[in-house]
Design a protein around this nucleic acid. Sequence first.
DNA 1: GGCGTGACTTGAA
DNA 2: ATTCAAGCCACGC
Length: 110
Amino acid sequence: MEENSNFFKNAQDVARLIPIGRVTSYGAIAKYLSTAKSARMVGWAMNAAKGTDIPAHRVVNREGLLSGAKHFSTPTKMQLLLENEGVKVQNQQIQNFKELFWDPNVELAF
DNA sequence: GGCGTGACTTGAA
DNA sequence: ATTCAAGCCACGC
């Protein structure tokens, strides 16, 4: 079976729903999937999402830091992608993170 | 098949 | 406020 992991599929699906110029956190997605403690798996799902149409660069940690930037093709790719969407990033930290934060639990409102 | 690691988060001390 | 510990589960060795 290759698609038995709903978690991965859902996480990737949610990530794909992130509006341009917005960002979210692994925990937010994990919590949306009722698995708040499995935030790490979201990161792994993003790892699997690389090379797809999934904007993994819009997913950061809870501090607004581009923790996963080093896993991109280039460490600066993530920041460039975000800035390309109008998101200000400085020193791997998203500016206005609180305003740009896109919470699936709220925006999607279940 | 066990052990360590990891794109994290939360809660307790 | 900061630091420490534990939980989660897939993947590689």
